[in-house]
Design a protein around this nucleic acid. Structure first.
Lengths: 162, 162
DNA sequence: TATTGTTATACTCTATAACTATA
DNA sequence: TATAGTTATAGAGTATAACAATA
């Protein structure tokens, strides 16, 4: 379950956003799974290719927790797509280096991502597609830029481990 | 973590949808939490008010599992907003009846929902707001109507309980 | 003292399985 | 046999805590 169904017959922005983002995410996951990637692995590969970056930097770019990044980098290493190397400037940090195979996979995964996006917009006229991107960008940068803090189910402080 | 960050500098539909839907969902959750509701509780209240409906029917409308519906109805009952009544036509089924207090809360929660939506669209011109709803509706009904099956991490069949 | 990366694990969410009572 | 609702709990995802190495 993801979407809150329309509460009334009138169009419901929550439903529209939840539904479309959920569907697009499952499509993307299915498409990337065919070459053994998750969306996160793709995201890390692409950003690591752009320039030399540490795990923390990649985590921030992908809006992940650093512990999630550990798991993602583990997966990339096991698949032979990237390697951890000590940073030359900070001996605490590890730089993620994409292998040749990783670069090739990243090229293909970017094609897959672009293809999924294109097919999603296919049904729209070029005009509407452009308008959608333009308006959504404005929303994402403006009114819907930052989440509310989550008061819903404030996670309780963890018990001290023994 | 929800969103896949933009893989390139060019606009990325996945990022836009994930980000905006995530932000809107946290806002909605925070706003509804102020009157003690979750989005699901609101959704069930509103649909139960429309006409006499069983838990299964409400679950389908809200795209929830029936076990999730049990939890949601439990919460509504504990808050005194709804009650389970035996269906007059099917002795297996329970009809969800909204209490007077529940109806009043539903009226307020619908105002809250509408308010959050309005404020999200505030920054846009009326024209853009309408275009967004129109185009998103077309996407949701057309190209992005149905999710791909999840092959990503096919959940393994559960072990038989002892 | 603060930060990077790591491990371990607690917490939440959701769905599966099995059950009871009906149909 | 199939379905409505329930309980119990497994599985997945994620984030917190604590730690070692280093800044």
């Amino acid at each position: 379950m993801i979407a809150m169904a329309p509460a009334r017959t009138e169009p419901d922005l929550s439903f529209l956003l939840d539904h479309t983002s959920h569907v697009l995410r499952t499509r993307m996951a299915a498409a990337l799974a065919e070459i053994g990637l998750t969306a996160r692995m793709h995201c890390v590969l692409v950003h690591a290719l752009e320039e030399e970056r540490t795990q923390i930097q990649l985590a921030e770019l992908g809006d992940m927790d650093k512990t999630t990044m550990v798991v993602t980098v583990d997966a990339l290493e096991q698949a032979g797509l990237a390697e951890r190397r000590p940073s030359s400037t900070d001996r605490r940090a590890r730089v993620i280096v994409v292998t040749e195979k990783g670069a090739e996979v990243a090229r293909r995964s970017q094609e897959i991502v672009d293809g999924v996006h294109r097919s999603a917009l296919d049904a729209l006229s070029g005009e509407d597609g452009e308008a959608l991107i333009r308006i959504m960008t404005r929303l994402a940068e403006g009114q819907l830029a930052t989440p509310a803090e989550a008061p819903q189910t404030a996670r309780r402080a963890r018990q001290r481990a023994k």
